[in-house]
Write a protein that binds this DNA or RNA. Structure first.
Length: 842
RNA sequence: GCGGGCGUGGCGGAAUUGGUAGACGCCGGGGACUUAAAAUCCCCUGAUCCACGGAUCGUGCGGGUUCGAGUCCCGCCGCCCGCACCA
C-alpha cells in the first residue's frame, strides 16, 4: 500500500537540501541555446549585493521561478538566469566606514546571498551567473562603450556636479541633504567638470514610438516614460526688446499669440542676471526665487511672483510693447528659459496676471459668438480663434501652422520640437565602477584604449581613508602611454554610472562568449525577454536606459532586437506593521521577533509591557519592521515561504507579512503531504465530480499562472485539496492527487519532489510535464439557476444544462418561494438568461 | 496643481466583464479525538430582526441608466503612487 514515509510529518529542512542537490546534479535548469523547443526567457531584475536577501527579493524571485518552472513543464526551453548588479556606492561607503575593500565586501555579500537564493530552491541557471564588477563583464562593457563612441553616440561636455569641498568628492543628488554633504555637512558647491554623455536624445522619437508596441507593459509605466521623454511641438521666436536686444522664447501655443499680455524670463536667465547687475531690487528678487523649494508639490503651492524689469518686448504682429518680468515659475532648463505669457489660456499666466493687474484676453472660444465671454479661469481646451486679427475663425491647429509659417517667413523664428529628455551623463568620479576606457593625450586628445588592451581593470591597492577619488590619486594607475603617439598620457579616471551595467546584462545572460560581449545569433534565439519582473521604482531610468542601449547596439550593428522586454510586470512591496514605544521624545522601534502579537494588541517579550502597533508599511531597516528570509526558511521551510509569497494579495499590490499567514502556509504544506499519503496503490473506480473538479482546476491554474495571478491559482488549489479530502479512494482520486502534486510543483518544488518520489512516478517532478486537460470534463452538465423576483434573489434551481427559455421560465414560476414572493401579482415580464438566471417582473 | 490608480466582512482579497456579492486564506467562536496538550478533523462566522420557515439592509457618499449595478454614466469624499509650474 502506501509508503510509510507519509506517517511522519514532512521534514522541510532535509527535503529542501536534498532536492536542491538533486537539481544541481541533474543540471536541469541549465538552458540549452541549441534546443528545438520553444524558448522562454524569464528574468527578474538582478539584485544589488547589499549583504543579505530581503523579503522583497524573495517575492520577486518566487514569481519568476513559478513562471519559469511552469514554462518548463509546458515543454519550453527556459532561460532563467541570475547575477549581481555589483558596482555602486554602498561598497565604497563600507570601505570608508569599515576599512574593507569594496571588492572583498561585494564578493562576500554575493556568496552569502547566493547561498540564500539556493535555500529557496529557485530554478536558476547558475552556470550563467555574472557579476558586473567582474573584469570579465565590465571589459566587454568597455568594448561596447568604445563601439558607441565610434558610432558617434558618446561625447564629452562640461556639466555641473555637486562638489563636497571637505570630502573632496562629487556627491550624488541623494547624498546632498538640505544643500549640504551628507557625510561632511559642508555646504555643497556646483562645479563644472568635463564629463561623458550618451546620446539618448538621438533616439527620443524612437523610444517614444516604441512604447506603443509594448502592449504587455503596465499602462502606468508607459505613461511615466512618455512623460519623461516629454515631447512638445511649438514655436521658438525672438522678441525685439526696447533696449535693442533680442529675447528668444518658446511656446507650445503659437495660436494664442494675440492673447500674450506679458513676457517672463527665469530667475537665472541671462537677461535677468543682466538687470540684476545694475538693479539691486532685481538682485534681491532673484535671491528670493532661489530660496523656494524645488519639488513640484512645493512649487505648485508657492505664490506666483514677478519683478517688472521695465523692459518692453515688441509683439511681432501688433507692434505693441509687452512688459518683461522676471518670474519664479519659469524654468531655465526647459525651452529657452523665457515665455510669452497668455493669461487667458494658461492657468499659471492667469494667476500671475491677476496678481499684477495685467490684461487677460480671450483668444480661443468654443465659437465665434463667444468671443466676449468672460474668463473665470484659464481655458486650455480646443476651439476657434477670436480677437486675433488674421487668425479669427481658425481652429487651434490651423492657427498654430499659420503663425509658425508667418514667423518663419519674417525670419524671426521657427517651428520647433522640444524634448524634456536630456542626454545621459554617465561620468562618475568614483572608484567602484567600470573604468571609462579612454586616454587623454596632450597631442592626440581623447583616444580610446585599443580593444586588445581591454579590460582596463581597477587597481586593487587603493586607500579609502583619505578623501577624494582613489583612481585620481593612485600613484601609477593613470600614467600610461598614448596608444596613438606613444607619448606620456593619462587614463580617464571617471567610471561609468551603474545604470550602464544593468543596460545590457540580459544580453550577456543569453550569450557569453569569451572574446566578445555577446553573439548576435545566440542572443536572437532568446531575446526579447518574454517576462521581466521587478519593482516599480525602476519604471523610468533603468527601463528607459535598457531600451536605449538595445537601440544603440542595434545602431552599431551589434544586434537585431529592438525592444528588450516583451512583457513587464511590476510587483508590489512586502509590508508589515511597525512596533514602537515612545522614549521621551524619541520613538524606539522593535522587530516583529521581539514582540508578542495577540488579537487585541502587542507586548514586548522582554518586559511584557505593551508596545504601540503602527501603520502597515514597506519593510525597512530604520523602522525595524523586517523579517529575515533565512529565519523563516529555517522555521517553516522554503516551500511555505514561497507559498506565502504567492497567496492572498494580487502580485502587483502590496503583500502584508503576517506570522499567522506563514503559519497557515506551513500547515498547508503538511496537509498536502498527508493528502499525497492518501494515494492508494491499486484503487479503482471513477468519481465523475472529482474528475471534473480536477480538470477544471488544471485549466484555471494554468490560466492564472500565465496571467501571473498567483493568488487566484492558490485559491483554486485549496479548493481542489478540499475536494480530494472529501472524496473516497478511487482511481480518480489517485489521478487527482497526482495532478495536485504537479500543479503545486512550480510553487512548492521540494514538497512536490518528495511526494513524486513516494508515489513512484519516477524522475524529477522538475522535469515532468504539466497535466493534460480533458476538455470534455470542463463542461458542467448541471447548472444552478438564480431565480429573481423584481431583481431580488428568491430561489435557486439546480437543473440540467441547456434547458430552453420556456422550460426555465415554467420551472421558475413553479417555485414555491417565488410564488410566495409574487403573492398573486400579475407577471408582466420574465427575463431568462439561459443557464444563468430567471428574473420575474410584476 | 497635474497625471495615474484604488475604495467590497474583523483582516488579505474573489466575483466568468451588466446576471446568485463575499470564492479561497487568515483571525475569531463552537464541537470531536485526548488523562491533558500539541497535531488533526467537523461545524459556524457581513449587519440587523426572527415566529427558526425566513425577512430587511449591505460593495466610500449622493444621484442616474437598466428587468437587474461591486461592475456602466454624472457629481462628491477619502486614500495611495508618480511628477516636470515643461510654456
Amino acid at each position: 500500500m502506501t509508503d510509510t514515509r507519509f506517517d511522519v510529518r514532512f521534514d522541510a529542512g532535509q527535503a529542501d537540501t536534498r532536492w536542491q542537490q538533486a537539481w544541481a546534479e541533474a543540471r536541469c535548469f541549465e538552458a540549452d541555446s541549441d534546443s528545438d523547443k520553444p524558448k522562454s526567457y524569464v528574468l527578474e531584475m538582478f539584485p544589488y549585493p547589499s549583504g543579505r536577501i530581503h523579503i522583497g527579493h524573495v517575492r520577486n524571485y518566487t514569481m519568476g521561478d513559478v513562471l519559469a518552472r511552469y514554462k518548463k513543464m509546458r515543454g519550453h526551453e527556459v532561460l532563467h538566469p541570475m547575477g549581481w548588479d555589483a558596482f555602486g556606492m554602498p561598497a565604497e561607503n563600507a570601505a570608508m566606514e569599515k576599512g574593507v575593500h569594496p571588492a572583498g565586501w561585494t564578493y562576500d555579500n554575493i556568496e552569502t546571498m547566493k547561498g540564500q537564493l539556493k535555500q529557496l530552491g529557485f530554478a536558476l541557471d547558475w552556470s550563467r551567473e555574472l557579476a558586473t564588477c567582474d573584469p570579465d563583464y565590465y571589459g566587454h562593457e568597455q568594448a561596447l562603450f568604445i563601439d558607441m563612441y565610434e558610432a558617434g553616440l558618446v561625447y564629452r561636455r562640461e556639466s555641473a556636479v555637486n562638489w563636497d569641498p571637505v570630502d573632496q568628492t562629487v556627491l550624488a543628488n541623494e547624498q546632498v541633504v538640505d544643500g549640504r554633504g551628507w557625510r561632511s555637512g559642508a555646504l555643497v558647491e556646483k562645479r563644472k567638470l568635463n564629463q561623458w554623455f550618451l546620446k539618448i536624445t538621438q533616439f527620443a522619437q524612437d523610444l517614444l514610438d516604441g512604447l506603443g508596441t509594448l502592449e504587455d507593459w503596465p499602462e502606468k509605466v508607459r505613461l511615466m516614460q512618455e512623460n519623461w521623454i516629454g515631447k512638445s511641438t511649438g514655436l521658438q521666436f525672438a522678441f525685439d526688446l526696447s533696449n535693442g536686444e533680442k529675447l528668444e522664447v518658446y511656446t507650445t501655443r503659437p495660436d494664442t499669440i494675440f492673447g500674450a499680455s506679458f513676457v517672463a524670463v527665469a530667475a537665472d536667465h541671462p537677461l535677468a542676471q543682466g538687470v540684476a547687475s545694475t538693479n539691486c531690487d532685481a538682485a534681491k528678487f532673484i535671491d528670493l526665487c532661489k530660496q523656494g523649494g524645488t519639488t513640484a508639490a512645493e512649487l505648485e503651492t508657492a505664490e506666483k511672483l514677478g519683478f517688472d524689469t521695465g523692459i518692453g518686448a515688441k509683439h511681432p504682429f501688433t507692434g505693441e510693447y509687452l512688459p518683461v518680468y522676471i518670474a519664479n515659475f519659469v524654468l531655465m532648463d526647459y525651452g529657452t528659459g523665457a515665455i510669452m505669457a497668455v493669461p487667458g489660456h494658461d492657468q499659471r499666466d492667469f494667476d500671475f496676471a491677476t496678481k499684477y493687474g495685467l490684461p487677460i484676453t480671450r483668444v480661443i472660444a468654443s465659437s465665434a459668438d463667444e468671443a466676449d465671454a468672460p474668463l473665470a479661469e484659464a481655458e486650455a481646451g480646443d476651439g476657434v480663434c477670436v480677437n486675433s486679427d488674421f487668425l479669427d475663425g481658425m481652429s487651434v491647429a490651423d492657427a498654430k501652422t499659420e503663425v509658425i509659417s508667418r514667423i518663419e517667413a519674417a525670419g524671426s523664428g521657427e517651428g520647433k520640437t522640444v524634448w524634456r529628455l536630456r542626454d545621459w551623463g554617465v561620468s562618475r568620479q568614483r572608484y567602484w565602477g567600470t573604468p571609462i576606457p579612454f586616454i587623454h593625450c596632450d597631442a592626440c586628445g581623447v583616444v580610446p584604449v585599443p580593444k586588445t588592451q581591454l579590460p582596463v581593470t581597477l587597481p586593487e591597492d587603493v586607500d579609502f581613508s583619505i578623501p577624494g577619488n582613489p583612481l585620481q590619486r593612485h600613484p601609477t594607475w593613470k600614467h600610461v602611454e598614448c596608444p596613438k603617439c606613444g607619448a606620456a598620457a593619462q587614463r580617464e579616471t571617471d567610471t561609468l554610472d551603474t545604470f550602464v551595467n544593468s543596460s545590457w546584462y540580459f544580453l550577456r545572460f543569453a550569450s557569453q562568449p569569451a572574446d566578445k560581449p555577446f553573439d548576435a545569433e545566440e542572443v536572437a534565439k532568446w531575446m526579447p525577454v518574454e517576462q521581466y519582473i521587478g519593482g516599480i521604482e525602476h519604471a523610468i531610468l533603468h527601463l528607459l536606459y535598457a531600451r536605449f542601449w538595445t537601440r544603440a547596439l542595434a545602431y552599431c550593428g551589434k544586434l537585431e532586437v529592438k525592444e528588450p522586454f516583451a512583457s513587464l510586470f511590476t510587483q508590489g512591496m512586502v509590508t508589515h506593521e511597525v512596533y514602537s514605544r515612545k522614549d521621551g521624545a524619541r520613538e524606539v522601534y522593535y522587530t516583529p521577533g521581539e514582540v508578542e502579537r495577540s488579537s487585541d494588541g502587542a507586548v514586548l517579550k522582554a518586559d511584557g509591557q505593551p508596545v504601540t502597533i503602527g501603520k502597515v508599511i514597506k519593510m525597512s531597516k530604520s523602522k525595524k519592521n523586517v523579517v529575515d528570509p533565512e529565519d523563516i526558511i529555517r522555521d517553516y521551510g522554503a516551500d511555505a515561504v514561497r507559498w506565502f509569497m504567492l497567496s492572498d494579495s494580487p502580485p502587483e499590490r502590496d503583500l502584508p507579512w503576517s506570522e499567522a499567514g506563514i503559519e497557515g502556509c506551513g500547515r498547508f504544506v503538511q496537509r498536502l503531504w498527508r493528502l499525497f499519503g492518501q494515494y492508494a496503490e491499486g484503487a479503482s473506480g471513477e468519481d465523475k465530480a472529482l474528475a471534473r473538479k480536477t480538470h477544471q482546476t488544471i485549466a484555471a491554474v494554468a490560466e492564472d499562472v500565465e496571467a501571473l495571478a498567483f493568488n487566484k491559482a492558490v485559491a483554486r488549489i485549496y479548493e481542489l485539496a478540499s475536494a480530494i479530502d472529501k472524496a473516497e479512494a478511487s482511481a480518480t482520486r489517485n489521478e487527482a492527487i497526482r495532478t495536485i502534486l504537479l500543479l503545486v510543483a512550480p510553487m512548492m518544488p521540494h514538497l512536490a519532489e518528495e511526494g513524486w518520489e513516494a508515489i513512484g512516478s519516477g524522475g524529477l517532478v522538475a522535469e515532468a510535464a504539466w497535466p493534460e486537460v480533458d476538455p470534455a470534463l470542463l463542461v458542467e452538465d448541471e447548472v444552478t439557476i438564480a431565480v429573481q423576483h423584481k431583481g431580488k434573489l428568491r430561489d435557486t434551481l439546480t437543473v440540467a444544462k441547456g434547458l430552453s427559455k420556456e422550460e426555465l421560465e415554467s420551472l421558475a414560476l413553479a417555485s414555491e418561494k417565488v410564488q410566495r414572493s409574487i403573492d398573486g401579482a400579475e407577471v408582466r415580464k420574465v427575463i431568462v438568461v439561459p443557464d444563468r438566471l430567471v428574473n420575474i417582473v410584476t
